[in-house]
Design a protein around this nucleic acid. Sequence first.
DNA 1: TGAAAGTCAATATC
DNA 2: GATATTGACTTTCA
Length: 409
Amino acid sequence: NRIPPEPSGGRNSAEESVNGLAGDPLASQSSGLKPASEDPSGGESQPGTPLPVPGHSGLSIQEMVAMSPELDTYAITKKVKEVLTDNNLGQRLFGETILGLTQGSVSDLLARPKPWHKLSLKGREPFVRMQLWLQDPQSVEKLMHMKRLEKKAYMKRRLSSLSDGHSVDGALAGSDYVQGSQSPGQQQLKKPRVVLGPEEKEALKKAYQQKPYPSPKTIEELASQLNLKTSTVINWFHNYRSRIRRELFIEEIQAAGGVGPGSEGGSPSLRGSKSGEGDSCDGTESEGTAETRQGLGIGLEDHRGACKDHDMEAESEAGGSNSSPTQLDCVTSGLSGPGSSCGQAGLGLFSLTEASSSSSASSTNIPASGPVRNPRDNNLRKKKAANLNNIIHRLEKAASKEDPSEWEF
DNA sequence: TGAAAGTCAATATC
DNA sequence: GATATTGACTTTCA
């Protein structure tokens, strides 16, 4: 992975920023800006653990990551978002200058940080960088300075392009900063981005519910039925599994009562029909997650194991009957409604696959009687029902096997 | 070696 | 214009 080019020709790569945190020549100007971290040691929601400053300690960022104590990734991202918002600093500038990441990555990282213990060394690096940045009393000043430099450079380009009779965009397009170092010829060779339609996504999600780890044969079939490349289907499954897992981490933190986004009502899993529509691998939703799992003693690793088990079950079931359509038929035909023989695989007592994709409580099959509940309660109920489904399904599976050694939990 | 993790960058959305 | 999403790809890990 490369570090993005420098925006304005200045010394602002992430590496330099980190290594230069202690000794940056930028003068501290009193501007009334909210300091990045008035209390580096951290208040209740503050990123807590102060790190040694690389410039002083002589450590590389990798060494610092390796030596770093456990950091509260949620508190760090929360604080970073706060500082960026308060000072009107963009994710792009922050990402490219401080983290060496692109805007999209920064957005993702800030919105869905993974817990420290789930991160690899490489994954921890941005959080260490953020922590260092927060610790730096001049962090905001430096970034503001960078912003000014960028603006200056932009104005300069605009002026010169105007005098040359070229558009600014044209001038920008020719720079590394905007387009990278590709020549126009290379740009034309670029593959167009595949954008999956809602039907395709729906079919893939249904397929995922039945087989989170599809066999190559299933992938082939899915690809041909959806008219996609097999690599697209493979990528989709990789990405979906990965993103579902991340949603689960968020939920786990929330359930643990941490500083997670839930404390502000911003759980990604509850964002309506976007990424929150994620399903867990065994026919339930991602919402059937930590809270419930913890209560029932099912951890994430167990959950993942269940995915594979379920996959194998689905695999054997799919090819096992001649009298009913295969699961794949059901997935791609969209005929899994009531009365159809489709849509039953992987479901327990409550049918949550389709209905609970909506954030509306009434869309679940959970009885609506009783006192009016707030959305949080409904979500909890959905989670519990979904998890119950999962357990019941596996119990049923287990019970259907004569040899106890074949029971799968 | 396959799956997960991490990231880019095009595109969508606000 | 800034931020969010997501398909594709590379790197890391078990």
